[in-house]
Amino acid sequence: MNVITTPLEGVLVIEPRVFGDDRGYFFESYNARRFKELSGVDPVFVQDNHSRSAKGVLRGLHYQIQQAQGKLVRVTEGAVFDVAVDLRKSSPTFGQWFGIELSAENKRQLWIPAGFAHGFVVTSDVASFLYKTTDYWAPEFERAVLWNDPAIGIEWPLDGEPQLSGKDQVAALLADAEVFA
């Protein structure tokens, strides 16, 4: 496993070691001891989520203002452009974003600690997306920041308008959003 730091403190790209031959491949998608050794992070995951979406679906930018979730995310089918946005008001990178392609082919994962909003857009015909979270889903604390807020300026790889949920269409601007201290 290789851990790559990003410009946002705490957000990490995880590249697993893949063993492949003419039969297929094998890789360890998560190992708590190794993850802690390489990243310094020791998360306890309590929930796994799985979504499947068509090309052009954009989910996010989501977070929970209480019961904040750290997320380890990866794609098992297709490809997405995955984004983390720093919502920690005291952070020198507050309001900044990091994006990366996650795909079944590259097998990369992204660690997004609590204090960040998270979202992705599907860039393949379809994508299956897995999330490991450090806290349970709490709809009463769920919040969203608008995917195209110009104050954040995410450069989404889109061919036209994305498909959004009703709640993502009316998400808050960063200036109006509840954020972390």
Rank of each mutant, 00 (worst) to 15 (best):
Q69C: 05
A54T: 04
H118R: 15
D21E: 05
A172V: 07
A181C: 08
G119K: 04
G20N: 14
Q163D: 11
G99R: 02
S165R: 12
V122A: 04
V13R: 12
E101F: 05
R34M: 08
A117E: 00
L61C: 04
I112E: 00
S39E: 05
R23G: 06
K36D: 06
E28I: 12
G10Y: 02
V122K: 00
H118G: 14
K167M: 13
E28D: 11
W111K: 08
P92N: 10
G115Q: 05
R59C: 09
T5D: 11
L173M: 13
Q96D: 07
Y131Q: 11
D82A: 09
Q67E: 14
N106V: 13
I14Q: 04
L130I: 14
L102V: 01
G115A: 05
E101T: 15
I154D: 00
L61H: 03
I152N: 09
Q96P: 07
L174P: 03
F141A: 15
L158A: 13
R17Y: 08
A177C: 10
V11P: 01
L110T: 02
R33T: 13
Q163K: 15
I65R: 08
D159E: 15
W97S: 12
L58Q: 07
L61Q: 08
T134V: 14
G153W: 08
H50I: 10
F94R: 03
K36I: 00
V121C: 12
V11Y: 05
R143A: 04
R143N: 02
N2F: 13
Q47C: 07
A181R: 11
W156E: 06
G70H: 06
A144L: 09
S90M: 08
N106Q: 07
T6Q: 07
V170A: 15
N2E: 15
N31G: 10
A68S: 15
D135T: 14
P16V: 10
A104H: 09
T133Q: 08
N2K: 15
E37G: 02
Q47H: 04
L12T: 03
T76K: 03
I14M: 09
G119Q: 02
A127P: 05
W147Q: 02
Y131W: 08
L12I: 13
V46F: 11
A79W: 00
V122I: 08
P7I: 00
N31S: 11
Q96A: 00
D82I: 11
F141V: 05
L173K: 12
L8W: 08
